[in-house]
């Protein structure tokens, strides 16, 4: 992984000169540097990428065809597609998919509109606006695992802050925030909203600020009302960003792990389990590495099918934009 800048220069200068004559317009893409120069620039990233991204993903694919406890050696008990067959009948896995759909649905119906509304709000000029924007984004900066510990204490059944908060407004019920199996996913969704609405809000805000004021002025001159402006200018022009946030939200939710793992470990009895938690438990808790690999391949396929389908049906030309910020997003 070492970089060797000192060697690169002499090597690269050994190639023939004569590029100067290229037309400036073509200069950007028209040059053909020597293979050695190219290699020096490409190899560090390529080796890193191959070793720690491509090989692992490929290896997961390979392992998913075996029964293997992972303790030493290589897998040798080939069982074909058995792991995948088991997977499709596994109620926990199917439940994970249901919970994935639930969180995605809630995000689209609740979280993203909330973020959108707040972005519109913060687009108004009023004193303190910048401070609000700064503060609304704070939860996004916090580490998920740390956030989970904090909310674990807030929703703790007997010393919990959430119960005390309710009691202070006269509701004296001890609510099983994390122990009620029909409630726990909604509590987790609430925490995800707390953590991630700021991210989506910032994206919407930036998109809204990119819409030129002239458009609104021109429409207003033509007699358009506020709601009409919103429907015919704001919504269409922010469409791409909205589509991308939906995309990011889904891809992030597929990978959801840290927050739920620390908060509930996926319990009670799988009620809050996610794909990644099931994979972790099967792999490290039960030494079923083969089966867990099949699960991770399923996760990959879900992301891939969704990404391709969404790109084809919805995003079209927005893809590059989507690609460039998958990193920073969850739910």
């Amino acid at each position: 992984m070492t970089l060797k800048p000192q060697q690169a220069e002499p090597l690269s200068r050994s190639r023939p000169a004569g590029r100067v004559g290229d037309k400036p317009r073509r200069a950007r893409t028209g040059r053909r540097p020597g293979p050695v120069t190219l290699a020096v620039f490409i190899i560090p990233a390529l080796v890193l990428f191959a070793l720690f991204v491509l090989v692992p993903v490929g290896f997961a694919g390979y392992t998913s065809f075996f029964r293997w406890n992972g303790l030493g050696g290589l897998p040798n008990d080939f069982i074909g597609l058995d792991n995948f067959r088991t997977l499709l009948a596994d109620e926990v896995f199917l439940g994970d998919l249901g919970r994935l759909a639930l969180v995605v649905g809630l995000s689209i119906v609740v979280q993203l509109p909330l973020a959108f509304g707040l972005a519109m709000l913060l687009h108004q000029r009023f004193p303190g606006r910048a401070v609000f924007r700064l503060l609304f984004f704070v939860p996004y900066v916090l580490t998920e695992a740390v956030t989970a510990v904090l909310f674990g204490l807030i929703f703790s059944p007997r010393r919990g802050f959430a119960d005390a908060l309710l009691a202070s407004v006269g509701v004296d019920a001890s609510i099983g925030w994390l122990s009620d199996r029909s409630l726990v996913m909604f509590v987790i969704f609430g925490i995800l909203t707390w953590k991630f609405f700021g991210f989506h809000m910032i994206l919407y805000l930036a998109a809204r600020q990119n819409i030129p004021d002239e458009l609104y002025e021109a429409a207003r001159v033509d007699g358009a009302t506020g709601p009409q402006l919103f429907r015919h200018i704001t919504i269409p022009l922010m469409g791409p960003t909205v589509r991308i946030t939906v995309f990011l939200s889904v891809i992030g939710t597929v990978q959801l792990f840290d927050l739920v793992f620390v908060l509930t470990h996926g319990g009670p009895f799988h009620a809050s389990e996610t794909l990644a938690i099931t994979m972790y438990e099967e792999g490290f808790g039960r030494n079923q590495i083969g089966y867990a690999s099949a699960l991770s391949i399923a996760m990959f396929l879900i992301s891939l099918v969704f990404a391709l389908g969404y790109q084809r049906l919805v995003l079209k030309r927005d893809l590059q934009g989507a690609l460039t910020s998958t990193e920073g997003s969850k739910a």
Binding site: R158, S174, G267
Partner: peptide, 12 residues
């Protein structure tokens, strides 16, 4: 109440 999410040796 809440035993479903209670652990053995953590708070509560």
């Amino acid at each position: 109440e809440g035993f479903e999410s209670a652990t053995y040796d953590q708070a509560d």
